[in-house]
Design a protein around this nucleic acid. Sequence first.
DNA 1: ATGAAAGCGCTAACAG
DNA 2: CTGTTAGCGCTTTCAT
Lengths: 336, 336
Amino acid sequence: MKNDKAPTMADIARKTGVSPMTVSRAFKSGSMINKDTRDAILKAAEDLGYVFDSTASNLRSQKTDFIAVTIPSINNANFADTVGGLSETLSVHGFQILLGYTNYDTEEEERLIEQLLRRKPQAIVVTGGKHTPRARKLLENANVPVIETWDVPAEPIGHFVGFSNANAVRAMVDHFVAVGYTRIAFIGGDASRDTRGSDRRLGFIAALRDHGLDASRLIHGGVPPISMREGANAMARLLAEYPDTEAVICVSDLSAFGALTECQRRGVAVPGRIAIGGFGDYEIGGISVPALTTINARARQIGERTGQLILDLLQDRQDVSDITIEPELIVRESSR
Amino acid sequence: MKNDKAPTMADIARKTGVSPMTVSRAFKSGSMINKDTRDAILKAAEDLGYVFDSTASNLRSQKTDFIAVTIPSINNANFADTVGGLSETLSVHGFQILLGYTNYDTEEEERLIEQLLRRKPQAIVVTGGKHTPRARKLLENANVPVIETWDVPAEPIGHFVGFSNANAVRAMVDHFVAVGYTRIAFIGGDASRDTRGSDRRLGFIAALRDHGLDASRLIHGGVPPISMREGANAMARLLAEYPDTEAVICVSDLSAFGALTECQRRGVAVPGRIAIGGFGDYEIGGISVPALTTINARARQIGERTGQLILDLLQDRQDVSDITIEPELIVRESSR
DNA sequence: ATGAAAGCGCTAACAG
DNA sequence: CTGTTAGCGCTTTCAT
């Protein structure tokens, strides 16, 4: 491994007898350049082991082709799907995702946004519509498109692609009530931390009240994200504290599955003795026995449409609008 | 939102009556600068809404603080854990992960590596020890540390942090044989695509042969990654094609869980009628009923130790060595 | 502790 | 289709 300085476009120019500018054109698709000249340049580049230097290109052209994205956790199939949809939509246009994890913490999100903006992304996508005041200000001043996702923000910073978490849970409550359950509980996490989880909990309470039902069966599962294990532990507490509960809605399919396993270990029939609902339509909910009633938030579609929105915005299209996704209630064996 | 040009260090310098160089020092920790001067500069920066421009800094200083990482899929808890460990270890030192997904395809990996190297990362981490010849050459010429993970490469490019997938599966075969099973099957994916999955399959075959057992019960689950659903389908085929099978090892816990649910739907007792083993120690294997025997590949530790290795290498420490991780066999209810 | 000059490697803008 | 010139915003280097 030799350690001489890496070859530059100037080296290629010298070797091929053209100007550096022509070399630059050879690497940029869609530029007017003689085919033979380009071929000679690309061959020389290959021979020299040249690697294009984005850092210089970024500075001069004032564009990085980075799209900054913050998600609560890398280890979550829903957010992974959103990033996947975003990434696939944007990568064919030469953009690269710059990803950061907030760990469900708006303070951490603020730090992350500041970090990411220094990299001069051409757009920034954040998860959720609640941010620290400073984070909000950073985003407002960023002078690039800002897209909030997975939520319908009270006051959008720029654009948003999301849905109402509260309304989504309301749809499930309506289903449970329609089936005939009245003593319904909720398993969720620390309300102040996971803003989407918190919205689901609030939606649950509001919906039960609208049905004239008691909304006090709230089980705290732990610090978000609530794991399968925490879902199981929460179910154990629910059965102890409110033994006559007929149905429970969990903040995610993962905690719902954990809750289900706790019932299985105790010989509590699902849905015979207690019905269970989840959130997110994770793969596990479709295949577990019994399969889980859930809400498909269309995670991948959120990513795809966010990507398309960014492409439109970067092309100065004026006819772009915010996008409200319609989550789908999926009724399965666990609630019938 | 005003659209004037973003303020630069020169603007701050003008406003504070110092030189741009002093402004630069104010933003760099550990530089000799008068405390009052720094405070004035930082205040002016805040007032102007200044955002540090990494692109310019990167070019001039020839360091980006990027660490490039390729993983097969973003939607996999094992790789997510590795990236999490890596990210946490490195971010406190100011590094940022530049992540790409190969979709379990070495051709895609090659494209991705080329893309990532243009961003001038200060190290590159790849998953697996098998690459296209061109990808290999790109990595060899990159002039930055290269770390292969999740494998023990036949010919390491630079360093590696991993384990032998074949040996890990062998340990599980030994366990199954010790418990008394002799008719053992394997559920995996397309051998040519997922090189780690392929190594597991080969390890399975070799281990069975060493025990003098038949190694022909190989069920093809589909294109990697094998989903829970595909695991269930594969189990259905296994029960049809080799009805006397006593135990099955699956390429991951996800396919193993799918296989388990198929047994539950058919009333096939696990482990009474058929034992099941997985791979990866995903959360689900620890909580499902029955819990799944599996192998913990210490995904997070792979990330943490890779991060530490990179820190050592970037400080020119000479006493760094490759790291072989010891996966742990975890015996649970599904195989006893 | 601070400043002046130069330049990282590429490409926008203009000329031919 | 190709070349020339200048400069993106920062930091290295050398002075003071």
